[in-house]
């Protein structure tokens, strides 16, 4: 857990955060391929550009390659994964089996969430599970890790050694409850929190202030998410089709005023401004970057926002 230079952490991401580095994570594009090469290609693009990569769990309720499998493929290409676990597709037995399995395959970061409902996906006829909610899942991971038992109390031979994360959405009603809910997730076991995509900086500021007052920013590492819009259409899609997202009208107007061929550049600029703004908020410990339809824009954003080179741990510098 401790490296030669005293940086503590179960994962590289945790060690960087504990060392006070501003972390950068990104989301792996979903793949619908049984060919490991499809994940390797994405890994090549992101290696060295981000500190860890989220492997989504049937995102937007569409089946894709298993998050745990994709994570192992990333590890094979020297990219650290964060495996997302949702409560939609597995009951407490399936979840625990996959948490152990993921840890056995070398996964050291988990991120727990409720998950989009099956009605949002391409299999709306499916039976949603929701045996546990995301807070139960968080606590269950901590029981596995810290108590070395299953939820039932039955002993594990070797507990999963994972850094535990959660998500929170500062922008969905009831807004007053959102900081308290993040606090509840921290009580349940979350050590890092990836926030929903930030478009509305006013709401984000109110949330961050309240979280600070509640002392939550000292108890968990909080990383807001930033989206790189390619076009007005992409922004409108976020506002209208993705539940829980708050895109201010002024931002859509700004994109509309931009000629079609320059909208991608404008999107990069918007994302860059949001990164600077959240970075200036006290207690924000990194950013999580998302683009839809290709990681090239995320990589450009990382370059242009001055987030390169990514920090190295002291032990990595010593062995280089």
């Amino acid at each position: 857990m401790t490296d030669a230079n005293g940086a503590i952490g179960r994962s590289r991401l945790e060690r960087l955060l504990r060392a006070g580095q501003f972390a950068v994570t990104a989301e792996l594009q979903t793949t619908d391929s049984a060919d490991p090469g499809s994940v390797f290609e994405l890994a090549e693009l992101l290696r060295g550009k981000v500190d860890a990569v989220n492997c989504t769990d049937n995102s937007a309720a569409h089946p894709h390659i298993s998050a745990v499998a994709a994570a192992r493929l990333l590890i094979d290409r020297d990219v650290e994964p964060i495996v997302q676990f949702t409560c939609r597709d597995r009951n407490r037995l399936g979840l625990q089996a996959d948490i152990l399995g993921a840890a056995a395959l070398g996964v050291r970061n988990l991120c727990c969430m409720t998950g989009d409902d099956v009605t949002a996906g391409d299999h709306p006829e499916a039976k949603p599970i929701y045996d546990l909610d995301s807070l139960h899942l968080l606590r269950m991971v901590r029981i596995l890790r810290d108590q070395g038992t299953y939820l039932s109390g039955r002993k594990l031979t070797e507990p999963p050694d994972v850094f535990v994360g959660a998500v929170e959405n500062p922008f969905a009603p009831p807004l007053d409850f959102r900081p308290l809910r993040m606090g509840k997730k921290i009580e349940a076991g979350a050590e890092f929190i990836q926030l929903q995509l930030v478009f509305n900086l006013e709401v984000m500021r109110v949330f961050a202030d309240r979280a600070g007052e509640l002392g939550l920013l000292e108890r968990a590492f909080v990383l807001p998410s930033v989206y790189v819009p390619r076009s007005t259409r992409a922004l409108r899609y976020m506002r209208d089709a993705v539940p829980g997202i708050d895109v201010p009208e002024t931002m859509i107007e700004r994109m509309e005023r931009t000629p079609r061929d320059r909208q991608e550049e404008e999107g990069l600029l918007i994302a860059h401004e949001i990164i600077q703004a959240v970075r200036a908020m006290p207690g924000m410990r990194g950013v999580h970057l998302i683009s839809i339809g290709g990681d090239d824009l995320v990589v450009r954003l990382i370059e242009e926002a001055g987030l390169l080179p990514r920090p190295k741990l002291a032990v990595e510098v010593a062995s280089a």
Partner: peptide, 11 residues
Amino acid sequence: KNLRNGPCGGV
């Protein structure tokens, strides 16, 4: 979603 601990992020 049978949540027992508060709203999901999709409100």
